[in-house]
């Protein structure tokens, strides 16, 4: 049997809005992924450590507070520093179009903005995760 895709859904920073993160987590689980949700207020260090411990294939981050320019790249760097070079990293939230190129440059593979279908996220992960 094929190994299930493992995803860490993470809330970096101090933002308490996790409606989106929880909806995504549940949709991924319903799509057959194994999902771990970090809960609120995780530092980039905690997220990278959780990704390592949980041996995930993908880290999916959500921020609505506007702290993404700092926190998304910080998570990417720590994940890579820990040697997880194949782990797919994606992000979502209230993120202005103009911020997206810099985030991609920093190593976030894709950014999902408000109105995204959960099925689009599922498809994206299936297509891009390295097995």
């Amino acid at each position: 049997m094929e190994k299930k895709i493992r995803v860490l859904v993470a809330k970096p920073g101090l933002d308490g809005h996790d409606r989106g993160a929880k909806v995504i987590a549940r949709a991924l689980r319903d799509a057959g992924f194994e999902v771990v949700y970090t809960g609120l207020r995780q530092t980039p260090e905690q997220i990278a450590e959780a990704a390592l411990q949980e041996d995930v294939d993908c880290v999916a981050m959500s921020i609505l507070s506007g702290a993404h320019p700092h926190l998304f790249p910080a998570v990417v760097n720590l994940v890579r520093e820990k040697g997880m070079n194949d782990v797919l990293i994606i992000g979502g939230g209230v993120i202005p179009e103009t911020d997206i190129p810099a985030l991609k440059e920093a190593g976030v593979s894709e950014i999902f903005t408000p109105g995204t279908k959960t099925s689009d996220v599922v498809d994206y992960i299936k297509e891009h995760v390295k097995k």
Binding site: G13, L14, G66, H70, A74
Partner: peptide, 9 residues
């Protein structure tokens, strides 16, 4: 812990 969040929301 405030890094990146100051003055944002």
């Amino acid at each position: 812990i405030s890094e990146g969040e100051v003055g944002k929301v």
